[in-house]
Design a protein around this nucleic acid. Structure first.
Lengths: 229, 229
DNA sequence: AGGCTAACGTACTAGTTCGTTCATTACTGG
DNA sequence: CCAGTAATGAACGAACTAGTACGTTAGCCT
């Protein structure tokens, strides 16, 4: 018999720190996303895991540190996804459009992350600010957008007076709101913005809105009236 | 001596149901917006009022009903503001642009409302759905946008394939995100989107983005390549 | 003036919730 | 194979929190 696998645990070790830690993080992410920081209950999380509450405190110390760990994991995954967005080879207009559509898909697929971000904002990002691991989390995306904007202006495609952070904000706003506000919006207007039958249309709309703004459609009226500046 | 004003209360009656009720709602709105539904403490609210916790329960029954009352008050104020937006006399392009900019200003000025909406979405709008008073809260705005869109299409200004709810979503997304996500965004990108020195630029950007999308700027690239449909 | 009731305050309770204590077991290195 | 340590579990406790019981007072009505 191999020494790595006791008879009592045929499908994995009964004692596995990695696995226990991972499960705690997973369950905690779901619970925090569903109930908010104060609303989530440590005891309830424990009940949803194979292990006990004792382990949450053993690995993470307290509720706040657990929440911060969840945040860090979520943001790390987003950064990974962003760095995988390969749009540099495209012409500026298509690069921005594709970036917007990829961001749309990513938001659509990571709804727990969006809820965590909403929750963080209710708390004025106090926990995010406490996290070390932040580093330059926003740098890569804005760097990418900066290069696209420069190329687009050089080619004469982009005329809007917007920097990389502005463009990132606009893309994020359109992608984020559709998920984050789906419930109140759906209740008030009778449309589930996140329903599959609307997804393609909204993805296209997101890309087109950003491109339209950058290529100057919004100033068309002013130009036609002979205004400048 | 007038019978309405006892000597012991020169500056207003010591017993004033209206005033007490109003103060409870006011404090509760602030606390719920700051801490979320679970995070807000009834005792803490009471400590911030001239009256006591007993009165909260006397007037509102329990924490949930108090929260719903806060929501109803907030939404009522928004609807009032929306119905005051008089843009029908403008040409379609300017009507939409103005509507977007007025919405921008309203969001900028009612940050507690935005937080309450964010909180509601974390709870899947369960409390909003419990409220009676909803009625057709979303009807008036989408009605207004519908009429503008029709006029704009008739005049040949608008070409984008979007209905009133889509347009409202887009405007809301741009206005809402800037406030709702200010803290995480500010932490990650080092820019306070809500700072006064950026406000005018972002207001203009909001109006231009919506107009650009509707007037077809986003499809320019496709048209130039000879694509149709 | 004086009774009646809406409005109010104090003090308490039942239940919850984070975090800990103490004991135990599974692995691993020697 | 055995000792030491990492990992784990059950039960507990102190502090908090929503909600209530009970008593009091202000001000209107006649």
């Amino acid at each position: 018999m191999s020494s790595q696998s006791p008879a009592s645990a045929p499908n994995g070790r009964r004692r596995d720190a990695e696995r226990t830690r991972a499960e705690i993080l997973e369950v905690a992410q779901r619970e925090f996303a569903r109930k908010g920081y104060s609303g989530a209950r440590v005891d309830e999380m424990a009940a949803l895991m194979r292990t006990t509450k004792r382990m949450i405190y053993y690995y993470f110390g307290n509720k706040e540190k657990l929440y911060i760990a969840v945040l860090e994991k979520a943001y790390t995954e987003v950064r990974k996804a962003e760095s995988a967005m390969d749009v540099q080879h495209l012409a500026p207009v298509e690069a921005i459009r594709t970036l917007a559509e990829l961001t749309f898909d990513h938001h659509d697929a990571h709804r727990d992350f969006i809820k965590l971000v909403s929750i963080e904002n209710i708390h004025h990002a106090e926990y995010l600010r406490k996290s070390q691991m932040l580093g330059d989390l926003g740098g890569p995306v804005t760097g990418l957008i900066s290069r696209i904007l420069e190329a687009g202006r050089a080619a004469g495609d982009f005329v809007a007076d917007a920097d990389a952070i502005d463009v990132h904000m606009m893309i994020s706003a359109l992608c984020f709101f559709r998920i984050s506000n789906q419930h109140t919006f759906g209740t008030l207007f009778g449309r589930d913005m996140t329903a599959p039958e609307h997804r393609d249309r909204y993805r296209k709309m997101t890309g087109e809105a950003v491109v339209a703004y950058l290529t100057g459609g919004g100033r068309r009226g002013a130009e036609e009236r002979g205004e400048t500046g």
